[in-house]
Design a protein around this nucleic acid. Structure first.
Lengths: 216, 216, 216, 216
DNA sequence: TATGAATGAGTATTCATTCAT
DNA sequence: GATGAATGAATACTCATTCAT
């Protein structure tokens, strides 16, 4: 991740005491993001829940937005790490394109689902906050790269004329379908409710069929 | 659409003068929804832009939310009509499953794209406003029904074990991919930018490959 | 009652149709005064409940206050009539001071109690509206005169030095105690709850004891 | 007074600066309650008169109502203290029922009169605000207890069958007559104007006559 | 005369941000 | 550094009154 570009204006303390209260701010903000939703949480709530004064928050963060951006950085760090691990595992477990597709679907779907409670409100904020939007895109791009490369490891089996493009389309469709199911940006109105398994299965079949189908 | 259930508390005037200012409110609200985004438009702005007093707005609409809900009803009415027309046209133009799939992708994609500037902020509001969410879902369901039925008209060509389910998955994936591209709920950060044609084409191929692939 | 001085600016129609809608305004206002309380009723509610347009109300009454004042005039007319009847009845039924005192207490107490639901909100409005206050005082004065005269009919039995003053004090105390019990002006927080009979009885004893006690 | 139950949500500051502005809010609110009346004072006025920002008010008080409730608590504290002192003084100064009655009338009457300018608007608000009503009742009850007990100290001289009841009725009548005179809840339309002394004197005689009169 | 749509000043309340201590 | 009291602009909403039709 391009932390240099995207890092919000923060002073990260090194000492124990400071570090601890800094931690509490971020944890409190994270929790409130989940419970109150992306827009409806206030700095007083962060102050109360995190046992930190409002002044302290402004000591570390330039603004409320900067605080949220820092939370996002932490969250996406966990998500990206997990995602990478899962994708790599899928890559190692599978010997063929047919085998790896459902594993990748599973990896992406489950990783996003695990972190949905935080990704949802962050996506919401991306609407207003271009920095959150950009950071989100960076994380998306890193996942995209991992998944594309895992698929391209079986390039020989791909029968589409332009394997790069095909693999790219696969990831976009996969991510979009999962994200919509999980209500990212929209709400927690899961379009599918109990059919999570069906979605994953059919998504796998769809991508496999596509990749293995001759272009013509 | 279940207007009876979802219609916000509105008094729709019939007379010329009244009708005109009523119209101006809705048009102003629509415009502000597009320019300011779903959350950041105020009633004073509607009042100013629409040349209507705030009291007048409250004369027609119970609340700010009710105004937005009315805008949504108008917009979705246009969207649903257009969508249905396009899907029916696709249905009539195509003689086979292979032919209809890209036409349906085109129909859905272009209809959503035409109305994206308004659908985007409305999706955004769906996050907070359950009525907007429900109305949105109803519109989604009506499109889903039309597309599924158009596909099932070629049921004989579908080689998946469970054609209903397959067709359902197709629509979900199709809608999710297009909506994400158009930034519904997320922002106007189109993930793909110039690759609109690629998305539509590959989506078509994917769905066709899936439907015509034997389940086993 | 000094209608000349206190009558609000009203045009009372004589014709059938007009008269009927005029009536409906007053009835609706009366009902809302009772159900919503003295301050919390709007002219739109009167318009709705009375099946009269707001314009019609302003056609008859100069202002919302004038409407309430007219309601008050009607209500106090009923109250005064009833009160006078009851006081006269007491006067005719009793042959002695000792006999008439409890009858007068009963007359005043029950008449006020019957009309409490309307008198309460009107008293409340008297706080802000000097005309309502003055009209209320006039009604109070007319009751006072009747009660005082009924007591002074037994002047010979009054042992206080100044019978006029004594009788005056009696009425004031009587009225105050009953009005407070009924929550006039204060709320419907009856101070005594179930002890209505006790209040009336002890009030009677108190007044009798006072009137028949030698001044010294 | 049951401060625990009735205390509005307030943060009372201890430091000098804070304490000062906190004080200014309450003083300003008190003053406006007196000059504008219970209903017609706004927070902007409090802000202006008290030289405090609106935000500051909301920093201390949950709502406008909570501010008024706090003012009430302060006022009733003064009233209750003064009342108790006066009643105790009367009790100690008098050796007989006949002697204490006018002293108690005097104590109650003068204490309420001193604080009438504030008690009047507070009574007014009790109409809408149940907490103000309840707090008012609590203060009333504490005065009632003190007066009843002072009278019952001369129980032997009371010739009514049920001294507790008699003493109770006495207080109710006393309080009602004084409160009505002072225009509590009604307006500042003192019914008696210059006859304050007459009211007090006759009230005293009335109560004494009642208490010392044999029940039969 | 009757109508009821239109007006708009006015109210309570919120909350990110600042700054004196 | 840390605190949290203070700020005040901004927002949704109300309702008596007016006036064009």
């Amino acid at each position: 991740m391009e932390e240099a570009h995207l890092a919000p204006s923060v002073r990260v303390p090194r000492q124990g005491r400071s570090k601890a209260s800094y931690e509490r701010m971020l944890v409190a903000a994270e929790e409130l993001l989940v419970t109150k939703g992306g827009e409806a949480f206030t700095l007083s709530e962060v102050s109360r829940l995190g046992q930190v004064s409002i002044g302290s928050i402004y000591c570390r963060f330039e603004s409320k937005d900067a605080l949220v951006q820092s939370v996002q950085l932490r969250v996406l760090d966990r998500v990206d790490t997990r995602m990478l691990t899962q994708v790599v595992a899928a890559r190692e477990a599978a010997g063929s394109l047919l085998a790896i597709v459902p594993l990748l679907v599973e990896a992406v779907a489950e990783t996003l689902r695990e972190h949905a409670p935080l990704l949802r409100p962050l996506m919401q904020r991306a609407t207003h906050d271009p920095i959150v939007a950009q950071t989100g895109k960076a994380s998306y791009a890193s996942t995209a790269a991992a998944v594309r490369s895992a698929l391209l490891a079986h390039r020989a089996e791909i029968r589409q004329d332009d394997p790069e493009r095909a693999v790219d389309s696969c990831f976009r469709v996969l991510y979009a379908a999962i994200a919509r199911y999980l209500g990212f940006g929209s709400a927690k109105e899961a379009a599918w409710e109990g059919r999570w398994d069906v979605l994953k299965q059919d998504l796998g079949r769809m991508l496999a069929a596509f990749l293995m189908m001759p272009s013509a």
